[in-house]
Structure formats: C-alpha cells, structure tokens
C-alpha cells in the first residue's frame, strides 16, 4: 500500500521524483492517441516544441447565433501537459474548451467551423460519436456538481454507463479513481453516504475522480477552483499537477497565478483570438505581444 499512498505527496516532491518513463514499457498503459513518437519524452522537458499534439485546432471559428465568439483559432495542445487558457471574461476561452468535447451541443444556437481533432477523432464531424468522444475527453466544471447520490455511485456513474463491468471490478475501479483524485483516505469509510455531505474542495476532487473513472485521455477543466477556498484550491492544484503524469489537461482559469503555478503551456485569449501561446514561463516572463504583457501584469482584465 505504501506505493499507493505516495500519491498524496505534495507538489514539490512530485516535481523532483517525476519519472521519465517510456510508455511502451508499461504493459497496462494505452498507447497514446498519436503516434509512438511521444514515448520517452519526460514531462520535465516542458519547453519541447516537437511534442505530439493531443488536440489539434486549426482555423477554428465558433458562433453563438450571429455572434462570433472565436476567430480563426489555431492551437496544438501537447499530450501529458497542462495547458492553461487565460484571458479576460468573454474572450472565448471557455467556448473553445467546451467545443473540445462538444459540450456546446447543448446550446441550441452554438455552431462552429474549422478543424478540431482529438487524437484521430474529427470532433466537428456529424458522424462523430459524441458518447465516445466524451468518454475520451472528460470535463470538470467551475461549480462542483456531484450527483445527488452516494460518493460511490457518483464515481461509478461513468463506468456503469460505458463499461461491461462486474461488481468487484467496479469496486476496484472506484477505489482507483478516488485514490488517483487523492480523495480515498478522506471518504473510504463513508463511500455510501451522500456526496452532498462533502466539502466544496472534496466535491470538486470527487468530480475529478468521476471524470477519470471512465479512462479519458484528456481532462478539460473549466475554472475548477474559482468556487473553492484557498486551501481547497491548493489541494486541487496539487492534484492537477499529479494527474499531468497520465492525462492531457486543459484548464481555463481567470487566475493568472494559478496558470503560472500549474500549467506547462499557456494560451492567452483576447476578443476571440489567441494572441499568444507558448511555454508558461515564457508567456509570463517574456511575452512577445504587448497585449499579453498588459494582461499578465494586470493592466487590464
């Protein structure tokens, strides 16, 4: 069990011991969605531009009715990295995030054009199976949204939906997800109590556990900490940093410090355009564009 509990270690330690693993050596691991080219690149080489993209976006336009929310956006999101979308309100960053797993299907007036690929899935194609897409691309929302069920049933929701799975396997899967989301120790004795009894931070980690239980390759996070207190925020940020080892994470945030803390790469959105995109350190310390500099130094936003 000791190896399992090391999952709860603080960020600083994770950064140090982050292994540089060859994925192909892992018997249980899934092949990454792209080609094997990504194998062998450790997460610590964060400024490597040759990374295999998990999400490819090219000339992407998004609309709500007549209003154009995104203009010809082009972006490559590398796998097993944390990519942050920053920018002032209404700049289109959430819109892009919600298009990646077609959450915008729910909005009647929303439509989009251009190229948006997740692995080998053409997201915008009519023939795309949205259920498959969303199983591969999980999402966590701003407000913690546990279902009004028990903690166990919350995590088991997705697997029950998608997998032919027996009870014992499901028990193990729930345990795995909760451990992965660093929540297991806090809830293992009350798995069958209502999820509404958890604190806000715990609820948000439960939502993350729920999202990873179906084995997505990509996790989208729409301002996951904006409804949480600072202590809970720190725990969720730690968690994001740990999950990066295994998942491609895209996070929308209003909080520039958060972007700087958790992300490897940052894209700055302004009025529906991507103004600048690059390695986080560079975007924050040596931005190429004037607008980016103004925003990260707090002149507007």
């Amino acid at each position: 069990m000791s190896t399992i509990e090391s999952a709860g270690s603080p960020v600083s330690r994770v950064r140090k011991i982050m292994p540089s693993r060859n994925i192909a050596d892992e018997p249980n691991a899934h092949a990454p969605m792209g080609v094997e080219g990504a194998a062998g690149r450790g997460p610590e080489k964060m400024n490597d531009e040759g990374l295999q993209p998990a999400i490819e976006i090219e000339n992407f336009d998004a609309f709500y009715g007549d209003y154009q929310a995104l203009h010809r956006v082009t972006l490559r999101i590398p796998e097993r990295r944390v990519t942050a979308f920053i920018g002032p309100s209404g700049c289109g960053k959430s819109t892009l995030l919600r298009w990646i797993n077609r959450m915008n299907d729910v909005v009647a007036t929303a439509r989009a054009e251009g190229k948006l690929r997740v692995g080998d899935i053409d997201v915008l194609s009519r023939s795309t199976n949205v259920v498959d897409l969303r199983r591969n691309v999980g999402i966590v929302f701003q407000k913690p949204t546990p279902f009004p069920k028990s903690i166990y049933d919350n995590v088991a929701y997705g697997p029950r939906l998608h997998f032919k799975i027996n009870a014992a396997e499901l028990d193990n899967l729930v345990e795995w997800s909760l451990k992965k989301a660093a929540l297991w120790d806090e809830v293992k004795n009350r798995l069958h109590q209502s999820a509404h009894g958890l604190s806000g931070g715990q609820q948000q980690r439960l939502c993350i556990a729920r999202a990873i239980a179906v084995g997505p390759k990509i996790l989208l996070m729409d301002e996951p900490c904006s409804a949480l207190d600072p202590a809970s925020t720190a725990r969720v940020e730690d968690l994001i940093f740990e999950l990066r080892e295994q998942f491609t994470i895209v996070i929308v945030t209003h909080n520039m410090h958060q972007a700087a803390r958790v992300s490897d790469r940052t894209a700055f959105f302004y009025q529906g355009h991507i103004v600048e995109e690059g390695v986080t350190d560079q975007v924050f310390t040596k931005p190429k564009q004037k607008q980016t500099e103004d925003y990260v130094t707090g002149k507007f936003g």
């Binding site: 399992i4 892992e26 939906l161 998608h162 084995g215």
Partner: peptide, 21 residues
C-alpha cells in the same frame, strides 16, 4: 490493482454498445 495504480494504467473494460443506447 496495486500494479495498476503504480503504473500508468487507465481504466479499460469492454465497452457497452453506444449504438444500442
């Protein structure tokens, strides 16, 4: 399970038919 957690295991089981649902 231990091994799964230790490594980079990702949940993968036989899928239910999306067409059926």
């Amino acid at each position: 399970l231990k091994k799964a957690y230790d490594g980079q295991w990702i949940p993968s089981y036989r899928l239910k038919s999306a067409v059926a649902s």
